[in-house]
Amino acid sequence: MPAVTYAGHSVAVNEEGFLVDPAQWTEDMAPQIAKSAGIDELTARHWQVIRFMRAEYQAKGTGPTVRVLGKTSGVSIKELYQLFPKGPAKTAARIAGIPKPRGCI
């Protein structure tokens, strides 16, 4: 499993770049993960989504899908795509250090 250094800490990531252990994540890693996902600056709106993803993961054991994010995060799906153009649920989960949200079956 590859290891990456974020904010001076070496963390294990899977082949898609998601942290293997969400407990290793700290907020100061987020800007660097975001850059690697093509997002140069994290605004307050980005942070609203990232913190929401973290909280949902801690409560439910899985991150929300885009549709659920649009309904519950206070950020509309349109804006979510402006904030995270390459797929909000996937990108925000990666920046938030949680596993890729389970697509439904």
Binding site: T65, V66, R67, G103, C104, I105
Partner: peptide, 8 residues
């Protein structure tokens, strides 16, 4: 459009 759907 999006999952979940009946009988995927």
């Amino acid at each position: 459009v999006d999952m979940p759907i009946k009988c995927p």
